[in-house]
Nucleic acid binder design. Structure first.
Lengths: 261, 261
DNA sequence: GCCTAGGTCCCGTCT
DNA sequence: AGACGGGGCCTAGGC
């Protein structure tokens, strides 16, 4: 990777450098003093100050202030970035079509521009996404309850997708909603919706519903009881350990996340 | 703003530069080749590649790949960033305490480091947040329906907060749920929960529920009808114009967002 | 294109 | 500290 670094002496020069970087699809970082206008789903103004502006090769634009995780303004993947100099300001406009939104960055001063082509073909591997936990539990339903049998995974019903559609040792239908983190009231209501939908098709069957999560909020647990649903705690780090031991070679650090039950 | 730019010739030199920038609370941008390990609420690995790493003065860390809005790995506001050189790699560890999470960036090569103190005291002004729309509608309930009177705003009931608690021209209680963008099924269910909660206290009254939004999804509209609720479209750009005309001096661009009804 | 659901969501706010 | 809801959420997947 070769990083090229400029201290443009004028905004006109900066325009040339930025235009070059855009056409050659480089990643670009600008330190500059700017004001920002955004209009689209919402609308905002940011008065003058020093910021870091990042333009990526797919046209995504990020404006960062000196603190905080989130960009103060942004545009995800724009096809259309225009540049001009107006009234002594370098104006960069990033237009997005759906939804129709415009981000306008007006630089009064550009301190430095760096750009480079990043050679990034790295593989991103995620462990213990909800999907992975669902896969594990669908193959090991006894983790949830002895005698449970998985009938369907991600079963489509009217309101959405049922994580696990099972039957218990007594032959009852059991609908399972999995959460990777603390289950909230929303999760319980989601489960209730699925049960109501399934009940329509089997009005005479007893249908159980279980929230499966490492922890649950107090009000969510109350709601669970009120709606005659169940909550089953699972140990994520336990699943993690089992999966790790099966994937020898992929050595992982000790799992440090701990959720309360 | 003074941006300082380095091309460190060794990882040891890079450590010194980064440590300096950290202690003087600067914003720092690193172009480097690295692998990344994250463990916390989830866990991930990213194999080797060129990336942009940003460290802000509050200790937030962002790792960006050459495309996309989202950082591939991150840490929002860490108190503890440690640096070392191990086996020919510069290791930066950012630790967060609640939730307990660790981000480990292992650089095999650092191309450039820039850092600066950004003087950013700009004011960020947002227009038409849900709160602003709610304020407007509470003062102008006839926008929703002729004869409507606002009784309470953000009224606390068991499941949460009712946006607007009103009475119509016939004296019926009207519960209003406002959405700034397309209303989803969740919004409709939220409204239903509020109505059910209020019905407990006034079992004999007729209680109407209205979803107020610039647009609504097809299935949400069906659910609205099924639950005998109502949907009222509002024109955000109209409210925008009225508010703009009242705030003379704050000239705004023409509102470009258009949501379907 | 719309809609649904997840996310290391982040973030503010309130208890 | 947990809990709850909003966000220009973003992003992936289905239809």
């Amino acid at each position: 990777m070769k990083v090229i670094h400029y201290n443009p002496s004028s905004l006109e020069e900066a325009v040339k450098i930025i235009r070059d970087a855009l056409t050659s699809k480089k990643l670009m970082v600008i330190y500059g003093c700017c004001t920002i206008i955004y209009e689209g789903r919402g609308a905002s103004r940011l008065t003058q100050g020093d910021r870091l502006v990042i333009v990526k090769r797919d046209g995504s634009v990020l404006v960062h202030r000196p603190f905080g995780y989130s960009p103060v303004n942004w545009q995800p993947e724009t096809t259309d970035i225009s540049l001009s100099v107006e009234n002594g300001e370098l104006v960069m406009k990033a237009l997005r079509l759906t939804p129709r939104e415009i981000l306008e960055i007006r630089f009064t001063k550009i301190y430095t521009i760096t750009h480079a082509i990043l050679d990034d073909r790295g593989e991103f591997i995620e462990y213990l996404s909800e999907e992975e936990i669902r896969d594990y539990l669908s193959k090991n339903p006894s983790t949830i309850e002895e005698g449970l049998i998985t009938i369907d995974v991600e079963k489509r019903v009217e309101p959405g997708f049922i994580d696990l559609y099972c039957r218990d040792r007594n032959g009852n239908v059991v609908i399972i909603e999995i959460k990777r983190t603390t289950a909230s009231k929303d999760a319980v209501l989601q489960l209730k919706r699925y049960i109501d939908a399934v009940k329509k098709y089997m009005p005479r069957e007893r249908i159980r519903g279980i929230i499966v999560a490492p922890s649950i909020s107090k009000s969510a647990l109350e709601l669970t009881e009120k709606l005659k649903l169940e909550y089953k705690r699972i140990d994520i780090s336990q699943i993690y350990k089992v999966l790790r031991s099966r994937q020898r070679g992929k050595s992982l650090l000790h799992y440090i996340g701990k959720a309360k039950s």
